[in-house]
């Protein structure tokens, strides 16, 4: 069943134990993301030092897919150059369109390729990413 592709164990684990929730000691930029059709909501704070992500907090509530995507992102962002994080988010969003797992994506992110089979859920997986891009745009 398609549901197995969507609700993979690793996704459910992120949903139940999300990473990246702790407040940052220093914040360079913040953004708020909201999906008005379902109520998913994110607050993303980033701390940037020397052009690299020194810290990220992805806090929010909503469906398992959006929460897992935010959690996965928080695990891979720290240490990346800001431009690289932007490229990574672009690649992630392409993967959601094609449905091909992108093995060049770090961490657990390739697991979310199954979301492509559920077009109405692509927005869920994208929300923490687009919110992060909004925060970057404010730097």
């Amino acid at each position: 069943m398609n549901l197995d592709a969507l609700y993979r164990e690793v996704i459910m684990a992120h949903h139940q134990h999300p990473a990246g929730r702790d407040p940052l000691p220093e914040v360079s930029a913040s953004a708020h993301g909201y999906n008005p059709s379902c109520g998913d909501e994110f607050e993303v704070n980033i701390h940037v030092e020397d052009g690299r992500i020194a810290g990220i907090q992805v806090d929010g509530h909503g469906c398992a897919i959006s929460q897992a995507a935010g959690s996965m992102l928080s695990q891979v962002a720290v240490g990346l150059k800001v431009e690289l994080l932007e490229d990574l988010i672009d690649a992630f969003r392409s993967m959601l369109k094609t449905g091909e797992p992108d093995s060049t994506l770090p961490g657990d992110l390739p697991v979310l390729s199954g979301v492509s089979q559920f077009p109405v859920r692509i927005k869920c997986a994208s929300l923490p990413m687009t919110t992060t891009l909004e925060a970057i745009a404010k730097l």
């Binding site: 069943m1 398609n2 549901l3 969507l6 609700y7 379902c38 109520g39 998913d40 909503g62 469906c63 398992a64 897919i65 559920f118 109405v120 859920r121 869920c124």
Partner: peptide, 12 residues
């Protein structure tokens, strides 16, 4: 079960 996930699972 968050509502959005509930709806997807029911739809399936």
């Amino acid at each position: 079960v968050p509502p959005h996930d509930m709806s997807t699972i029911l739809d399936e």
